[in-house]
């Protein structure tokens, strides 16, 4: 469903992604692992075309989306939940959801506000609160819910567990598993191996902008040298 072929991405002169290739099949939940600065966030931004790869192709549902404006990528069914959450702090929860709303798509679940409040009950109580009054966990939920309002067929989640209380992390994991069971394709970046293992079926390990490993968590566990070389601090 999503395919990156030989992507090279830069920030100015800094070469961040080096010939990175990656596939995600429909219905899969894939975890991007790696240390700080390995290129996880840049990979997701390069898919969204917020960072346009200087070479290589990004294909989604068979279409070559390289170089498209971000709004067109989003309308093609790719949802993006950024690392810093980036909710609109001046807008209420309901208004934040409204910004994310898009027309229904045939190949994806159709989300309503009520369905999202069921998925994230905390948000329901705070629907008239402004974004800036939410806790970190609630902001993360709102960011995911806002993206789901666009009825995406694939969601890119950038470090969903970062900076969130442990209790809320469990809620978050439950929600992602629920989304997976409904057939949503998810590519998420994570530093928290435990969280990744709980929600994802496949792991991709990045280091210095290149894929070092791709396979099941069982295979990852069976190769301690990979974990030692690319993941452990």
């Amino acid at each position: 469903m999503l395919e990156l072929a030989q992507i090279n991405s830069f920030y100015g002169k800094a070469h961040v992604l080096r010939a990175l290739s990656l596939q995600v099949s429909r219905g899969q939940v894939v975890a991007l692992l790696g240390r700080n600065g390995a290129g996880k966030t840049t990979t997701l931004k390069s898919i969204m075309q917020l960072v346009v790869p200087r070479s290589g192709r990004v294909r989604f549902n068979g279409a070559d989306i390289t170089g498209w404006p971000a709004h067109r990528v989003a309308r093609a069914g790719l949802g993006y939940v950024p690392e810093e959450r980036r909710i609109f702090t001046d807008l209420t929860v309901l208004e934040n959801l409204e910004v994310g709303r898009q027309k229904p798509r045939q190949d994806a679940a159709i989300w309503s506000r009520d369905a999202l409040f069921e998925l994230f009950p905390n948000l329901a109580e705070r629907r008239h609160n402004r974004g800036r009054d939410l806790s970190g966990g609630e902001q993360q939920m709102l960011s995911i819910a806002r993206t789901l309002m666009g009825n995406p067929s694939c969601v890119l989640l950038d470090e969903p567990s970062e900076g969130i209380a442990p209790v809320i992390i469990e809620d978050m994991a439950r929600a992602i598993v629920q989304l997976r069971d409904q057939g949503l394709t998810v590519l998420l970046s994570e530093q928290n191996l435990h969280f990744a293992r709980a929600v994802a079926s496949r792991a991709v390990v990045l280091d210095r902008g290149t894929t070092r490993f791709s396979g099941s968590f069982a295979d990852l566990d069976a190769s301690p040298e990979i974990r030692d070389a690319w993941l452990s601090v």
Binding site: M48, L50, P69, A70, H71, V73, A74, R75, Y80, P82, R86, F88, T89, D90, L91, E95, N96, E98, V99, G100, R101, Q102, R146, T147, G150
Partner: peptide
Amino acid sequence: TRVGILVRAATQDREMVGALGVNQ
């Protein structure tokens, strides 16, 4: 109105509004 909500959202974070599928 929806337009107004989009305007206020864009005032704060244009790029994010684009990433949510709005043609800036």
